[in-house]
Each structure stands twice: as structure tokens, then as C-alpha cells.
Amino acid sequence: MLRYEGKTVIELDVNGEKRTVTVRPSDILLDVLRDQLGLTGAKPGCRNGDCGACTVIMDGLPAKSCLVLAVEAVGRSILTVEGLDAGSPIQGAFVAKSAFQCGYCTSGFLMVCHAMLSKYPKPEEHVLEEWLQSNICRCTSYQEIRDAVKSIIQQ
């Protein structure tokens, strides 16, 4: 049985590296990634699980890191936008298709896209919509994000 009380040192597996952090059991993974590990790609857009800007990938599935306790992430593999291979196709596609403007939602969208494309390399339209509906973009028309994903599927 695991039990965490008060400030505790835990080890997280982030972007393939073992990282040691000191957390309270009520600390949120998002805050630990940002404040302790300097991984500020995940953004606190709402801290309520509604906007998707804080999305990371946990054990292959997208997760809103504002709805995960840091202690829950022990033993899981976490991938953040900083851990995407340099110049991953989805990043290039976002650039090529104008799939961002202010850039604040971008990391979250990229992580959902990356998780989806890892699981479904050629997702059908309804799958694409279902996965990407977890995130909000306020700048683009969404058409650009859709086009970016499609441009990868077609490759």
C-alpha cells in the first residue's frame, strides 16, 4: 500500500528521464512539471480539465495534467511537448498549416495529435474529431488544425 503524507520526494519518468521532485500529495502534475522541472510547454489554461492546454501523454494516452496528482504519476511514463522528437512531423505540420496563432493551446493539441497518431496512424474523421474535441483553440478556425493532422495522415 502506498501512502504519501506531507512533502515527499518522488521519482517521475518524464520524457524518458528519471526526475526527482518534492511534492505534497495534493500537488498537481501540471504544477510540478512547470514549477519544478521547468517544463512549461503544458499550460494552465483553466485548471479544470476543460481546455486541454495542459495535455501530456501518460502511458500512451492523453491526459490533462491539471487533473492528475503528481503522486499518481509515479511509475507511469510521461511525455510532454518538450519530449517530442525534435521536428516531429506533427510539429512541422502545425507550422506548415498555420495551426496556431498565439501558441498557448498548441502544446496540448500537439500532444493529443501525437497520442492519437501513435495509436491510429490513419484515423478516420470521426476519431480525429473525437480526440481533438478535448481541446480548445481560440485563435485558429480549427480548419488549420484539422488540415495539419490530415497532412500527416496522407503522408
Partner: peptide, 22 residues
């Protein structure tokens, strides 16, 4: 041409106010 800050934004490295070390 793509926006100048494109790769800063898609790499998650673009810093916004709340991202700065505290």
C-alpha cells in the same frame, strides 16, 4: 512565410508570463 515564432511555439519553448521562473 511561416510566422517568425513558429518553432518556438510548436516546441513548447515559447515563454509566456506565467512560464518564467519564479
Amino acid at each position: 512565410i511561416p510566422r517568425k515564432e513558429s518553432w518556438a511555439k510548436v516546441s513548447g519553448r515559447a515563454k509566456y508570463t506565467g512560464d518564467l521562473p519564479a
